[in-house]
Design a protein around this nucleic acid. Structure first.
Length: 153
DNA sequence: GCCAACGTTGGC
DNA sequence: GCCAACGTTGGC
């Protein structure tokens, strides 16, 4: 299957592109949204390219790139009673939530702010720009991905 | 299976 | 801190 492209949101106060650069890879756990989960379990493949997006930031925007480095596995945080992400409906036999591993690729020299993205004709169909969109993982076209990389250089 | 209430996200 | 948008929950 052809390589896909994704945009993954994170609040930099929680986990930023700098954290990913330091860690090299991270498991994208604690996702509690069915649509995002289904992207991870059904559509994301090792080698897919990812835009790392800073939400709830000043300013919000695309901060860098990564790549999917491991396919979806069971998200361990759903079994941790002390975690905010504990899921009482889940069991080891029937886990509900999954996570992929993301590897650092590049930090953008220039953060591509949300404001800048809105001005870009080639990006006008991006889901992230749609008002009220809260989905933390969204698919991108190859052209959108490449345009963002160009702007970030 | 509908839908109102509620909680969360995220830009501003 | 406000509020619009949207997903989820739960009563019926």
């Amino acid at each position: 299957m052809a390589k896909k492209y994704w945009l993954m949101k994170s609040e930099p106060e929680t986990y930023s592109i700098d954290d990913l650069e330091r860690d090299k890879t991270t498991w994208w756990d604690s996702i509690r949204n069915y649509q995002a989960r289904n992207f991870m379990t059904k559509e994301m493949k090792v080698g897919d390219d990812v835009i790392f997006y800073h939400s709830n930031a000043t300013p919000p925007g695309a901060a860098g790139t990564g790549t999917v480095s491991n396919p979806a596995k069971v998200d361990p945080t759903q079994f941790d009673k002390k975690s905010d992400y504990f899921e009482k409906r889940a069991s080891k036999e029937r886990p509900m939530w999954f996570c992929v591993e993301l590897a650092f690729k590049k930090k953008f020299k220039n953060l591509v702010s949300l404001e800048e993205m809105k001005e870009q004709k080639p990006l006008e169909n991006m889901l992230i720009l749609r008002k009220g969109n809260r989905l933390s993982i969204t698919p991108l076209s190859k052209a959108e991905f490449e345009h963002l990389v160009k702007l970030g250089k």
